[in-house]
Amino acid sequence: MANAAVATHAAAPSAEPTIAICSSTFAADRTFVLDLPSVGRRTVVLLAARSTQNHAGRNNMRKRYIVDVEGVPPPPSPISNAVVVGNQVWISGQLSVGDDGVFIPGSTVEEAKRAFAHIFRIADAAGFSAADIVYVDLAFIDLADVTDVNRLYAEFFPEGQRPARTIYQAAKLPFGGRIKVQAVAAR
């Protein structure tokens, strides 16, 4: 859908052209022909709009990159903490890292608490809340820890409003971490 300026021109050769401009919302169509029997002429409607796709068919949806977030150390890699695209934010994987950027080892639950705290701060910096999180991806070093993290997950997300989730066992995580958390939020 796009916002459009709509101009109508009389198609009858002897008639004076008339122009009406309004704001409207429409799908990808760009030209309409309307029969207006009450005024006895055919009207061509030309739509001028900013499409979400360029001429090569690529998506031009505006993106906002979230790099610096208060309370979250800058990423050690050349990445953004998150990218906002439309009404969604895609949050990069977070580990148990202190404000100084140094990894803080602990139990899987302790590491998950710190990682989720970063997820929630990044979501907030992007204009989203924890309640907006719709998907969580959890990478574990040991799937035996899932039960403990499930209890923490239930504390963070109330029943009936829990995000979809994927869990898997990773061969290795950066800094010897026990869990990595990444998320997607939408409103």
Rank of each mutant, 00 (worst) to 15 (best):
A48F: 13
K63E: 14
Q182N: 10
S80P: 02
Q88W: 10
A183E: 02
F128N: 04
V109H: 03
D68G: 01
E70C: 03
H118E: 03
G177Y: 02
Q53L: 14
I19W: 08
R64C: 07
S24I: 10
R30W: 11
R58T: 02
M61G: 11
D35R: 14
L138M: 05
D29A: 15
F175E: 07
R41V: 13
P17Y: 09
F175Q: 04
G98Q: 01
L152A: 07
A123G: 11
R165L: 09
G160E: 00
Q94H: 07
D29R: 14
L34R: 03
I133K: 09
G101D: 06
R178Y: 00
S38E: 13
P73L: 05
Q53Y: 14
A27S: 13
I179L: 06
I66R: 01
I19Q: 07
S51R: 15
V44R: 15
S77Y: 08
N60I: 14
I133Q: 03
L95F: 07
R30Q: 15
R187V: 04
A125Q: 08
A2G: 14
A186M: 08
A2C: 14
E111C: 01
R151G: 05
Q161E: 10
S77E: 09
A171T: 14
F157V: 06
P174C: 04
R114V: 11
A123P: 08
F156A: 07
A12M: 04
R50I: 00
A154C: 06
A115S: 02
